[in-house]
Design a protein around this nucleic acid. Sequence first.
DNA 1: ATAAACCATCGATGATTGTCAATATACGCT
DNA 2: AGCGTATATTGACAATCATCGATGGTTTAT
Lengths: 110, 110
Amino acid sequence: MSIQRCCPPKRVIRTDYSEDAAFFQALADEHRLAIVASLAQTDGEICVCDFTDSLPLNQPTVSHHLRILRESGLVTSERRGTWVYYSLAPDAKRRLQQSLRAIFEGRVLA
Amino acid sequence: MSIQRCCPPKRVIRTDYSEDAAFFQALADEHRLAIVASLAQTDGEICVCDFTDSLPLNQPTVSHHLRILRESGLVTSERRGTWVYYSLAPDAKRRLQQSLRAIFEGRVLA
DNA sequence: ATAAACCATCGATGATTGTCAATATACGCT
DNA sequence: AGCGTATATTGACAATCATCGATGGTTTAT
């Protein structure tokens, strides 16, 4: 007898998830998560100096993580005088939830 | 005059987010997201052979991604005869949402 | 027993990442 | 102009990662 198939062939989704993956990639570091959580649970902004003071990382490393978060669009920065302040992007939470929904329930069409 | 501080010092959260980071790390790849999405949007399980057929990856690479998802606890696997079937872990979505909540609203205490 | 199919593991390779010291840039104060 | 502080960038390095060919284990069919 011919080899039976494993099962009625299931549809493997071919959607392009690279944008969502980049999003999760930005969150895939404990220190970046601490930064995002600090921004989310404080109202307003946080000075870079507070991060360099509190995180167990050297200043260039903090700057590196902040850049990754900035380029992901999850946070924004603003220089005022000597200091630079970071804030959570207004739609950060919504965009993450949308990514989760896209994965678990399918992309919501416009 | 002495140098002024940047601002009233903001609390930077010192929670350990390494578990959540590992979670997001597992999702930080477009092909793994496609696998999770396929499992989430199909009822039941999907045979490994369907993934190797459909994903633009060779069989060892598919196996590699499945292993990462398995070890993260997001999916489970079961061998039946020649074939191995993967399913979404029942609490996968809930655990991810909990991580998001931990970040944006603070950890929920037991 | 043999063959064939499915899947996991191993080993290698190139790419990416997290980290830091050193340096550069931007700003405020004198 | 010159100095000191804050932040970003650069360059280097070790570690991790995604990918694939080769191999091995397991199961089914003959």
